[in-house]
Design a protein around this nucleic acid. Structure first.
Lengths: 400, 400
DNA sequence: TGGTTAGTTAGTAAAGATGCCTAACTTAGC
DNA sequence: GCTAAGTTAGGCATCTTTACTAACTAACCA
């Protein structure tokens, strides 16, 4: 048994080992020798650590590569075993829950979804069933699972795994991590859906490998996840990124023809969120004799009408895009990110309005930054949740 | 000679040593035994490290404390030697340069200032002279100096120590670190003045010990420094915190009666910066028969008139404060800091307008945060620059 | 063409250095 | 004698260096 060196030397070995693992993972097939060079470790040390990693199945040898130009022994190529473990990602939305099992490089082996239940108990039961099915589909056993990540649609205390407030699910102070861990035999991590999304995009999407990323998600509500110095930034009280409350028009904010703030929606949200768009459209239609829409319509419908050229809809959407443009410009001036990603329902129409947003940035922001739609599509939440688990698990290797 | 263990075991010893040092520094007089307990290190290890730290003069023994209730040998009390080294801090402003020498706990031993020269060469020469004087006044030799920090009024590449752009000094791509290090026999670190200020306030001022801090400085220009996860956040291209470009009123931003953006000033800056206030006041005075001010007046004068109750001035200042309120509210919604500090010339009038800003936050921000004036007064820049050096020097001990 | 030799690189083994821990001891006060 | 602070001695884990073997290329020569 290992001695209980608390602040001890064993930590360093663990660190070196993780570094070796990461080095192999990132640099594809690579020899022990080259790993030693890259990590500034001696060859024997690397050999010993690789030996352990092979034993533990994190690495595989894939036969000899080719020798260098100047001759010499052929190197033994090492590769990361992306199937050494698997991670489950859960994207818990207001209307549906998307689930998936991924390997260690984020490849989905099985995905599924089911409608969100309003009762917490039934929701968890459905989740359990669904995950069991997923395991069967992927031909995996619980032992193969390293952990499970969950993206929840609301403010979340990621340390304790408590969803502090999720209006769309009527959750408040719900200890999701604890409840889920009672149901599953692996560790569970929970975070805000937007935070999870930005992790996913930084791992495998449009912000791959970047250190400073802002993701703005515009759908029913408006949210924003930030990656700063390569780390998720969650704020002092888990409330960072509430861009939905950004005021881009003081005069309007102060005027009386808007509902008072703090009834669950912020200023920007009132303009660019789904409900806000519908509201504005209704307002716009008042002056017109013939209703453009039936009684029930969605923001998506308004977008469609605007694309089709209807003037009233265009006016509404133009204002939405204008607000988004200024919100993005403000974020760029404050955060100076490498990239701004636009996600949520609105990202489907990205091509259409991105140029206008870019113009606003160019005119009003202090510096520039590319604005792109998210790249991971419908699996974004799942992949992000998987990334959450992997980062937390490997968090020891944060420093070089 | 030490073997060149690169990724080696020596790093851990260094870390433990720094932890011991920090432990003694933070926990006042303390015995070896208690340090061992707190850091989960063994007594012999602590003794050895303390021995080295005593040799190197970082620690001092201050005679025996009192024995415990149950008897036993009296502990030997250790204290941090705050005079083991000294650091020079330079606050380089647009009109004057403030200099100071501090000990390791931020106590100023000598401070001074001199007018800013427009010529770089003469400025550096004056700096050299002034620092030499400072050393003499503090009765120190160059060997006693650990390093020098400089806060520069503009966008700064802190890695290379290059001031990228400082309009008030007409500097562009100026390698200040390199130039200064040619003049002085110690390492020099350079950063933005607002970044330096937030470090200072977090060290010894109004944000002591906090991990998430926003400092907004409003004077000639408008700047913002952010401490996130306990670390300075500088952005992808050293441009983070350009709050002067935040747009809080889209309609006005688009209207034609303002100068076009990107002539060196951002939207918010045009309203709340010194020049902007003067401009607004002039605009306001046009309608009035009798001029309130002589031809030349400053933002400070306008503030004074407003405090005295002049209606035109009050209108101008009210708008300024309104803009600031929304800017602060937006920052809080986005960053969710533990505290927002207000610095720069405007902080003198803090008492007067803080309540209104707080009202705006309460009405429009997603969460709350205290808003306070900076606490370090005229030495803020100097102390912050000292802090910059100390953090960089001790950066190894960032993790617990 | 085919064999031999020199040079180069991958990986392993043994020995030395460093730093931590535990256990036992000394010191100093009750 | 009891207790707690601090030191000494011995052992263990980890890394590095040095020296080695294995394996391959290139070039030379019969």
């Amino acid at each position: 048994m290992k001695s209980n060196h608390k602040g001890g030397i064993a930590i360093m070995k663990e660190k070196n080992k993780r570094n070796v693992l990461r080095c192999v993972k990132e640099n594809g097939p690579i020899s022990r020798s080259e790993v030693a060079d890259q990590l500034h470790l001696s060859k024997p040390t690397v050999s010993a650590l690789v030996e352990e990693l092979l034993q533990e199945n994190w690495l595989k040898e894939v036969g000899p590569g080719s020798a260098g130009l100047a001759g010499g022994r052929k190197p033994i190529q090492l590769v990361f075993n992306s199937r050494a473990a698997h991670v489950i990602g859960i994207d818990m939305g207001g209307t549906k829950v998307r689930t998936g099992i991924c390997d260690l490089i984020g490849q989905p082996l099985a995905v599924d979804e089911f409608p969100t239940q309003t009762q917490k108990k039934t929701l968890l039961k459905a989740l359990k069933q669904n995950v069991d099915k997923l395991l069967k589909n992927a031909a995996l056993k619980p032992d193969d699972i390293l952990g499970m990540g969950i993206g929840a649609p609301g403010m979340t205390d990621a340390d304790r795994g408590v969803v502090i407030d999720a209006p769309s699910l009527s959750w408040s102070q719900y200890p999701l991590k604890k409840e889920a861990e009672a149901l599953f035999p692996w560790p569970v991590m929970v975070d805000n859906d937007v935070n999870v999304a930005v992790l996913g995009e930084q791992w495998l999407g449009a912000a791959k490998g970047m250190k400073h990323v802002v993701l703005i998600s515009i759908g029913t509500g408006v949210g924003c996840g930030m990656l700063i110095n390569g780390q998720l930034y969650r704020g002092a009280t888990w409330a960072a990124g509430e861009i939905g409350y950004m005021v881009t028009d003081m005069a309007k904010a102060r005027s009386a023809d808007l509902p008072p703030p703090h009834e669950g929606y912020g200023f920007l949200e009132q303009y660019v969120g789904g409900a806000g768009i519908v509201q504005s459209m209704k307002q716009e239609m008042k002056g017109q004799p013939e209703p453009l829409f039936p009684n029930n319509f969605s923001a998506k419908d308004v977008f469609q009408k605007a694309k089709d050229g209807d003037q009233a809809a265009v006016r509404v959407i133009d204002e939405v895009i204008d607000h988004i443009g200024f919100a993005v410009a403000n974020m760029i001036s404050i955060i100076n990110p490498e990239v701004v990603l636009l996600g949520g329902g609105i990202s489907r129409s990205a091509d259409w309005f991105l140029p206008r947003i870019q113009k606003t940035i160019q005119d009003f922001a202090s510096v520039s930054a590319p604005v792109l739609p998210t790249a991971l599509g419908e699996n974004l939440g799942v992949v992000g949740a998987v990334s959450l688990v992997l980062r937390e698990t490997e968090s020891v290797l944060k420093e070089l």
